[in-house]
Design a protein around this nucleic acid. Sequence first.
DNA 1: TAGCTAATTGATAATGATTTTCAAAATCAA
DNA 2: TTGATTTTGAAAATCATTATCAATTAGCTA
Lengths: 133, 133
Amino acid sequence: MKRNTWQREAVRSALGTQMGFVSAQALHSSLKGTGSQIGLATVYRALADLAQEGEADSLQSPEGEALYRACSLAHHHHLICRSCGLTVEIEADEVEAWAQRTASLHGFSRPEHVVDIFGFCSACVPPVAAELP
Amino acid sequence: MKRNTWQREAVRSALGTQMGFVSAQALHSSLKGTGSQIGLATVYRALADLAQEGEADSLQSPEGEALYRACSLAHHHHLICRSCGLTVEIEADEVEAWAQRTASLHGFSRPEHVVDIFGFCSACVPPVAAELP
DNA sequence: TAGCTAATTGATAATGATTTTCAAAATCAA
DNA sequence: TTGATTTTGAAAATCATTATCAATTAGCTA
């Protein structure tokens, strides 16, 4: 049976206070920073549980880290600045519908899609100007 | 100056014979399997180069591995079976346009989007039937 | 063709995220 | 409270990927 521990609550609540996506490492540091004595392994376990129970969204950053975010109600998509990390929540009904349609069109079930756009926000100029047309 | 080595050719050619996405590790094993003495670090470097030069596409698997695939010409999206690895190339003009539009709408430049759908193909039944409605 | 020089290789060590281990601590039902 | 069972957490183990650096090699150039 699943038990309720202050650690799990701490992770759930800490995740709720974050605005964007956080890595397990970052969340752990954040918790430690507020005086919590929670262990890193526990944070990983709690996040994995939350994600499985649908209480958290997760995605892979381009650097290969797993990022988590408290899941409000709907499924969202993001526009993430590669430089400053600014995250803009975007409407993706269009993509949502397309993903469902495309998956079932090819006979795929239980589709989970990853639709995130990484770029440079207006405040962060592209680092390699020579690459631009 | 960039030089042509049999190692780089081996990676390029090995990538070309793969049908779907492969990890660097897998490609290295595959090369070793055919008698090549290429080193793992070199495979990583060659793949990174190919991806940067636009000769290969790369994406992050949900497990956090970087996957590569020989890039034909256009930018494609994929429908990938979590169980058997079957990869279906999908048309995503709709999403392509949406990504561009959304990025610039929010002032983002040089957008790179990740649009991939992971699910279970018709041949692979969902492992957890209880989760379905 | 021989020699030069900078780019490339690869074995290995280093890194960094994530997972496993397992004994000790905590939870929950009775 | 007791006791069975789950959960925790520090440290070790994994795993993919990157950095190191001496030895090798590609591509000039004489």
